[in-house]
Design a protein around this nucleic acid. Structure first.
Length: 822
RNA sequence: GGGGGCGUAGCCCAAUCGGCAGAGGCAGGGCGCUUAAACCGCCUCCAGUGUGGGUUCGAAUCCCACCGCCCCCA
C-alpha cells in the first residue's frame, strides 16, 4: 500500500533515537514512583513471530503508558537461552549449541527492536551466560543446604536403543522413542528434586489474593490438587500382621469396600502375589512399566481392555468396617506416586472402581441410596447412608466424620491431606542446561561444589552426536573431579537443571543484573518487587508460574531474599493464543505469518495497532484471510492521522463557533475513555475510540468553514499523546514535527480530561412502556425524578398509548430511563 | 467424566450497574476526484443477541437445561 510517508525510514529513525537517548533506561536510585513491567523472557527461537509481536505490543504499551504517567518503569529484556531445541539443532549440525543459540538471540533481539518495543538494554541477561549459571548454581546449593534440594530414586523414560533418558516430549504417543523407534521403558534412576510440596499449602492459599485471571488461578489450584481424607490400614487376611496402607477421600463408603487395588510399583506387591498368580501379575507390571501416566489413568481403554489392565494377586485383606475379607488386585490405573500407592475400592460410589468390578466380576455394595431416577452404575453424589452399620441414615458429610473417628480406633487411621502436586524433578540428562554443582565421592558421598569454585561450566570441546546421550556424561575432563572434602578423585554430577529452574528467579536478576557477589541484592530487589505487571502466554499458567512462586517463598525462607514479598507477580495478564485454521500458530505446525513483511507496508505501528484492535487481548483470535485487510485498515488509520496532522486539504480559521466546543468535548471524552480503557486492558475499544475521534475531527476540519487552529491543535496533540503508547513511531514523528525536533511525545505527561468538558448539557432519556422503548427525550442530566416522570407521561406517543389510564407502576432511573407499566 | 471460558450483522468485534442492541474495523454497494485505475474523500449496508425455559417493570447481560467451539484436569 502506498503511504504518505516513508514508513521504513521513519520507524528506524525513531528506534535509533530511543536507543541513543536511553529514555527507557532506569537506574536503581530513580526517585520517581516505581513500576516493574515484565514480559516473560522468551526462549530465543530466532526471528519474532506474531505471538511475540502480540506479547511485546502489550508490554511496550504498558511501559510507555506508565512512563507518561510519571513512573520510573523498569522494563528489562532477556533470554531463556538453555533448552532442548538448541541442543537438537546442534546435534543435527554437529556443532555446539552456543553459537546456534547466540545467533537466535541476535535475531530475536533485532526483531523486538524493529517492533519499536523499548527496554533498558543495559540489564539484558541470558540464562546460558557464565554469570547467570553461577547465580543459579548458588541458589541450588543454598536450597541443598536447606534441605529443599534432595536426591531420590525416580522413574524416567529410558530408551534401551539409545541408552539414554528421554524427555517426555521425545516419547511418541505409541510409547516408542522418536529417534530409534524402540519401546521406551520406565526405569528408576537417582534424580534431583526440589521440595515444592513443602509449600503446597501456602502456594494454594496465596492464590486467592492474586490479581490474576480467574482461569489461571483455577488451573493452579487444580494442579496443586489438595484433597482431605483418611489414611488407614487394611490388615492382610493371612494373619501375618502386615497391612496395606490406603488413602481415601470417602471414608464413609467403607462398608462398600469389596476389593483393594495396589499400584504395579507397590512395595508389597511381591508379598501379596501368590505363586499361581505370578505370571499374570508380572505381565501386568511389565505393561504398566511401558505405559505413560496418561494412558494408565485414562478411563477410555486405549486398545487395552480393562480386563488386561488389572490382575488378582491371590491375597486378601480385611475390611475394618465389615470384617469381610476382600481380594487384592493390582491395576495400572492406581499410581505409585499418588497417596499411598494403594486404594480401597468402592465400585458402588466410584466410576473407575465400578467399571473394574464389572469386568472382573466383583460385588457391588451400595452405601449411599441413589436418587430414584438413577439408572445404575456408580453414584458419587450425596444421599442417605445405607448398608453402613453405625452410619446408616446419615448424610455423606456427617458419615465422613463418623467414619474418620471409627478408623482412628480401627485400622490405625489418621486424617490426612493429600496433594496431587509432586516434588519437582529438576535433573535433566542434557548438555545444554545449567550444570548441577555437585560432586560424588566414594567416601564422602554427595558433596556440594564450594561456592568459590562456581560456576561449574560445561566444556566447549564436546562433540554433539546422535547417540542422544549428553556429552557431559562421557567427557572425562568434566566428569573427573577432586572431592572438595577429602581431595580424593571423585565424579562430577553430569546432569543439568531443568530450564524452568533458570526462569524461576530471572525477574530478580533484572533488578540487579551486574551483581558479582550474589544473584541480587535483596534491598535493590525489594525496591522493585513484586512485579507490578507480568505479561505472558497462558501456556505458562501452571508450571512456570507455580515454580516461580515457589522459588520466591523458598528464597525468602533460606535467607537469600530477606524483606521481599512472598508473591513475585502482583498482577498477571495472559494474552490469548493466535490460531490459524483451528490450531495454534506455531513453528512446528508451519503456519507462521512472519511480521517482517508488514514492516515495509503498514509498519510496526500498523501491525501493533492491529494486535491491539483485533479483539480483547485475553481472547484467542483466528488469523484469517481477512486479517491482512484489517491490518491494512490500521495502516489507513495512521495515514489519515498523518494527513490531518500535516493539514492536508485543511484550511484554518481563527474565529470560534459552536463546532469548536463540540470538538473539544469529543477530544476530552476520548481522553477519559482511552485512559480508563488502558487501565482495564480494553485496548480494542481504546483504538476504536481513537478512530472515532479522528473521523470526527477529520470531517470537521475539512468542512468548508475550515478548522479553528487552536481547536485543531488541541485535538491533534491529544490524538498523538493517546496514541504514543500504541503507535509510538508515527506519534513521535508528528509530535516532533509540530513541537520541534527535540520535543519527545513519550516524555510528555499523559493528558488529563477536563471535567468541565466531560459534563453533558443534555442527555437522552429513554421512555419505555411495559419495558418497550416508546420515546426518547432530551433532558438535563440533573433532572429530578418527578420532572422526568412528568416529561415521560406528557410525551405524545406515551400519552396516546396510555389513553388516559393510570399506570400501575412507574420505574425511573434518572436521567437515563423511565419505564411506565400500564 | 469433572472444572473454567466463549457464542451479537456476511466477517472481526462494541454495548460501566440488568435500562436506546451498534462504537470501531473488514468485506460489499453508490457517488465524488481521475483521461482511466489505484489512492483519497463522502454516503450506504435491508439485518442479528446459538436453542428452550426461568427471575424481573425491563435480560445480549443474572439463573437452569440443551447445542456448538476452545482451554485445563482426568
Amino acid at each position: 500500500m502506498a503511504r504518505p510517508f516513508d514508513v521504513v525510514a521513519l520507524e528506524s529513525k525513531w528506534q535509533e533515537r530511543w536507543r541513543d537517548l536511553g529514555i527507557y533506561e532506569v537506574n536503581n536510585d530513580d526517585p520517581r514512583e516505581r513500576f516493574y513491567a515484565l514480559c516473560m523472557y522468551p526462549y530465543p527461537s530466532g526471528v519474532a513471530h506474531q505471538g511475540h509481536v502480540r506479547n511485546y505490543t502489550f508490554g511496550d504499551l504498558v511501559v510507555r503508558y506508565q512512563t507518561m504517567r510519571g513512573k520510573a518503569v523498569l522494563s528489562p529484556f532477556g533470554f531463556d537461552s538453555f533448552g532442548l531445541p538448541a541442543e537438537n539443532a546442534a546435534i543435527k549440525a554437529g556443532s555446539h549449541p552456543r553459537p546456534f543459540t547466540e545467533a537466535r538471540i541476535i535475531e530475536l533481539r533485532t526483531s523486538v527492536q524493529k517492533l519499536g518495543a523499548v527496554y533498558d538494554w543495559r540489564r539484558e541477561i541470558s540464562s546460558h551466560e557464565a554469570e547467570y549459571i553461577k547465580c543459579s548454581q548458588f541458589l541450588f546449593l543454598k536450597m541443598f543446604e536447606a534441605g529443599l534440594a534432595y536426591r531420590a530414586q525416580a522413574p524416567v523414560n529410558w530408551c534401551p536403543g539409545c541408552a539414554t533418558v528421554l524427555a517426555n516430549e521425545q516419547v511418541l504417543a505409541d510409547g516408542t522413542c522418536e529417534r530409534s523407534g524402540d519401546l521406551v521403558e520406565r526405569k528408576d534412576l537417582e534424580q534431583w528434586f526440589l521440595a515444592i510440596t513443602k509449600y503446597a499449602d501456602e502456594l494454594l492459599s496465596d492464590v486467592d489474593a492474586l490479581q490474576w485471571p480467574e482461569r489461571v488461578k483455577s488451573m493452579q489450584r487444580n494442579w496443586i490438587g489438595r484433597s482431605e481424607g483418611v489414611e488407614f490400614s487394611l490388615a492382610f487376611a493371612d494373619g501375618s500382621g502386615r497391612a496395606l496402607r490406603v488413602f481415601t477421600t470417602r471414608p464413609d463408603t467403607g462398608f462398600g469396600v469389596t476389593y483393594a487395588v495396589v499400584a504395579p510399583e507397590h512395595h508389597l506387591l511381591e508379598a501379596l502375589t501368590t505363586s499361581e498368580h505370578e505370571v499374570a501379575v508380572s505381565e501386568l507390571v511389565q505393561r504398566a512399566r511401558n505405559s505413560s501416566e496418561l494412558e494408565r489413568t485414562s478411563s477410555s481403554d486405549s486398545g487395552v481392555g480393562l480386563d488386561k489392565r488389572g490382575a488378582f494377586t491371590g491375597s486378601f485383606v480385611v475390611n475394618p468396617f465389615s470384617g469381610d475379607e476382600v481380594p487384592v488386585y493390582v491395576a495400572d490405573y492406581v499410581l505409585g506416586t499418588y497417596g499411598t500407592g494403594a486404594i480401597m475400592a468402592v465400585p458402588a460410589e466410584d466410576e473407575r472402581d465400578f467399571a473394574f468390578a464389572a469386568v472382573h466380576g466383583l460385588p457391588v455394595v451400595r452405601t449411599v441410596a441413589p436418587p430414584e431416577a438413577f439408572d445404575g452404575g456408580a453414584y458419587s453424589g450425596d444421599g442417605v447412608k445405607i448398608n453402613s452399620g453405625f452410619m446408616d441414615g446419615l448424610d455423606v458429610a456427617s458419615a465422613k466424620i463418623a467414619a474418620s473417628e471409627f478408623l482412628v480406633g480401627h485400622g490405625d487411621g489418621s486424617s490426612t491431606v493429600n496433594y496431587r502436586l509432586r516434588d519437582w524433578l529438576v535433573s535433566r540428562q542434557r548438555f545444554w542446561g545449567c550444570p548441577i554443582p555437585i560432586i560424588y565421592c566414594s567416601s564422602c558421598g554427595i558433596v556440594p561444589v564450594p561456592y568459590e569454585q562456581l560456576p561449574v561450566l560445561a566444556p566447549d570441546d564436546v562433540t554433539m552426536d546422535s547417540s542422544g546421550q549428553s556429552p557431559l556424561a562421557s567427557h572425562d575432563g568434566f566428569r573427573n573431579a577432586t572431592c572438595p572434602t577429602c581431595d580424593e578423585p571423585a565424579r562430577r554430577e553430569t546432569d543439568t537443571l531443568d530450564t524452568f529452574f533458570d526462569s524461576s528467579w530471572y525477574y530478580l536478576r533484572f533488578t540487579d543484573p551486574n551483581n558479582q557477589q550474589r544473584p541480587f541484592d535483596p534491598e535493590i530487589a525489594a525496591s522493585w518487587m513484586p512485579v507490578d505487571q507480568y505479561i505472558g502466554g497462558v501456556e505458562h499458567a501452571i508450571l512456570h508460574l507455580l515454580y516461580a512462586r515457589f522459588f520466591m517463598k523458598a528464597m525468602i525462607d533460606i535467607g537469600v531474599a530477606p524483606g521481599l514479598e512472598r508473591e513475585p507477580f502482583k498482577r498477571l495478564f495472559t494474552q490469548g493464543m493466535i490460531r490459524m485454521d483451528g490450531s495454534k500458530m506455531s513453528k512446528s505446525k508451519g503456519n507462521l505469518v512472519a511480521p517482517e513483511a508488514f514492516y515495509q507496508t503498514v509498519g510496526a505501528d500498523g501491525l501493533r495497532l492491529f494486535h491491539l484492535f483485533v479483539g480483547p487481548p485475553t481472547d484467542d483470535f483466528d488469523w484469517t484471510d481477512q486479517s491482512k485487510e484489517a491490518i491494512d485498515g490500521c495502516g489507513r488509520f495512521l495515514d489519515r492521522l498523518f494527513r490531518v496532522a500535516t493539514l492536508d486539504n485543511i484550511t484554518l480559521r481563527t474565529d470560534h463557533d459552536e463546532s469548536d466546543d463540540a470538538i473539544r468535548r469529543a477530544v476530552h471524552r476520548t481522553i477519559a475513555k482511552v485512559s480508563s480503557d488502558l487501565e482495564q486492558w480494553s485496548y480494542n475499544t481504546a483504538v476504536a475510540a481513537l478512530m472515532e475521534l479522528l473521523n470526527t475531527v477529520g470531517k470537521w476540519a475539512r468542512d468548508e468553514r475550515g478548522a479553528n487552529e487552536e481547536t485543531l491543535n488541541e485535538a491533534v496533540d491529544a490524538l498523538l499523546l493517546l496514541l504514543a503508547p500504541m503507535a509510538p513511531h508515527l506519534s513521535a514523528e508528528l509530535w516532533s514535527q509540530r513541537h520541534g525536533e527535540s520535543s519527545l511525545v513519550h516524555t510528555q505527561h499523559w493528558p488529563i480530561a477536563d471535567p468541565e468538558l466531560l459534563r453533558e448539557e443534555l442527555v437522552t432519556m429513554v421512555v419505555q412502556v411495559a419495558g418497550k422503548l416508546k420515546a426518547r427525550i432530551d433532558v438535563a442530566p440533573s433532572i429530578s425524578e418527578q420532572d422526568a416522570i412528568a416529561a415521560a407521561l406528557s410525551d405524545p406517543a406515551v400519552a396516546s398509548l396510555l389513553a388516559g389510564a393510570t399506570p400501575s407502576r412507574i420505574v425511573a432511573k434518572v436521567p437515563r430511563m423511565v419505564n411506565i407499566v400500564p
